[in-house]
Amino acid sequence: MKISKSPWILHYDGSSCNGCDIEVLASTTPRYDLERFGIINTGDPKHADVFLITGGVNYQNRDVVQQLYSQMPDPKVVVAVGICACDGGVFKDCYNIIGGVDKVIPVDVYVPGCAARPESIIDGVVKALAILDKKRERMAQGLVPDEKVWTNTIVRPGSQEKQED
């Protein structure tokens, strides 16, 4: 398997219960050692290639997530870790949860699980790296990194209407 350069990770906790967060941290520690792939967990979005998000998105952190995403340089990939980040999980029905991360930014890889195990997180990151390579190639050809144009489908609280894709 070819591992692309040395991709750095930015980790943000959406509204996760911490379960997936500590598993993300655990996957960088000696037992699982994500760092052997040259992957480093960074705190600065401008250094990062891979955006790991745990937990669903709520009305407070929506802007934070979008801002972090826009600060990352292209090409970039987003990995949604845990079932909450994928579609809201057990908290889907909570009044303060918008839903999965894909409601506010485009997601490339979904890692389900409650909590997602470190093995599957590593697997998800490695899959994301392949996508990162593809995006880089597209950029080299002068194309936009993403093949599909992503549209936002947020339902605001109180409104029944859902915007069309």
Binding site: S15, G56, N58, C94, Y95
Partner: peptide, 13 residues
């Protein structure tokens, strides 16, 4: 409030 989900309200569901 960044992680507020409102799970206490879920007792109704």
């Amino acid at each position: 409030g960044f992680v507020h989900r409102g799970l206490e309200k879920l007792v109704e569901k």
